[in-house]
Design a binder for these strands. Sequence first.
DNA 1: GTGGTCTAGACCACG
DNA 2: GTGGTCTAGACCACC
Lengths: 128, 128, 128, 128
Amino acid sequence: MIILDYKDRRPIYEQVTEKLQELILCGILEEDSQLPSVRSLATQLSINPNTIQRAYAELERKGFIYSVKGKGSFVADASSIKALKTGQLRRDLNEWMRQARNAGITEDKIHRWIAEDWTKIMPEGGEL
Amino acid sequence: MIILDYKDRRPIYEQVTEKLQELILCGILEEDSQLPSVRSLATQLSINPNTIQRAYAELERKGFIYSVKGKGSFVADASSIKALKTGQLRRDLNEWMRQARNAGITEDKIHRWIAEDWTKIMPEGGEL
Amino acid sequence: MIILDYKDRRPIYEQVTEKLQELILCGILEEDSQLPSVRSLATQLSINPNTIQRAYAELERKGFIYSVKGKGSFVADASSIKALKTGQLRRDLNEWMRQARNAGITEDKIHRWIAEDWTKIMPEGGEL
Amino acid sequence: MIILDYKDRRPIYEQVTEKLQELILCGILEEDSQLPSVRSLATQLSINPNTIQRAYAELERKGFIYSVKGKGSFVADASSIKALKTGQLRRDLNEWMRQARNAGITEDKIHRWIAEDWTKIMPEGGEL
DNA sequence: GTGGTCTAGACCACG
DNA sequence: GTGGTCTAGACCACC
């Protein structure tokens, strides 16, 4: 379900965090469904359980999952997850717009860029 | 002219690189004008000259400035700088769109977000 | 595996970069195989780890190797390495041809030179 | 007759050396004709006389010019100049071939590259 | 253990 | 004075 890229310069735990986040957002991991245990996912990916532990902690901090001691980790409720991600995306967009404005890009140009490139973006056909 | 954020996890030289890049793009540092010397900027920011040296080397590699041994460092040709930045911004936007699409954001919604927030973005009133 | 020339006016890190690049191109260092660690190569060559670090950073920027924090540095994908080097060689040849043309060398003469000298070039029998 | 490029990373004296060498090779500066005096060329280029002095010394060392105390500097005899440059070019080509061979380039490919690109190389229409 | 960043202080080439 | 290179030694994040 997850493929690590060791050539990626980002830390492993960050890759795991991101991939799980995408799986949750795509709806592949449904609301309240149980995530694989820290140990099983670690052995499956041939990495240290500490790394998975850190990824899960990060996801819980962000509000995407919740953990129950002795039971496991579970996907948080869908609506709040969507709100979280939408808020983050909009903040990223605003930061990007600030830079674009400083570089002299007009609003019209941005709309045109989006119209041109939106369809070119593939709907994530690759593995996660 | 530059304020460092030591709480920021990114390396100092990267912060310096980014801030100088913004100053160049904003036109505050004009074409062929001389940048502060490695040593003077280092003492001004209370950091090691090597760190500034690395930031300048990075900016030169990217094509934003050029250095002349024994003379100093200077802002590169304005038009090529603009081309560089525009290309970078568009690539960033496409990466953002990929994420937005995965999160179920529609193209219409993005256009609406931009229309709403564009005017709210201040023309770089903050400190750099 | 690497011998430094302190009489050479070029910086040490550049010599190291070039020698490693040759070792990679010759296939002595194979795809995805691990390079010596920054510290070990530094002690082996009796130079400072920072210098090796800079050479590795340069090689990574050029696309010949990739680094993984906490793991090590590794030789990049062989096919893309070959493409990189071929492009560089052709650009070098064109620059050389410009000079030759200015000096009154004809195209025929160049073809003859190559035919004469190609077989004399040993397949890298020397040390690197 | 000479235009300096301050964006060029190479030292000024090296640029002057190279440009004069090209002017000599092109035949613009003829055998035994007098070069401009160190001081006059320095003021013409708005640089330090020491820099010109160093360029002339380099050219004399290489055998392209000869100096007569109290008289000035003069272009060496044409045939030996041509031999000098031809020898240098051939050595450069052999070094390039060594690299190409290590990278797996065949002799046929080189001949093809030259045939393709030779006519594209402009006969140095620019300023020197 | 690994790569990566930073500091302190030195030396060099250049103009 | 400038940019650029190198050393010595330290600390950090990651695995």
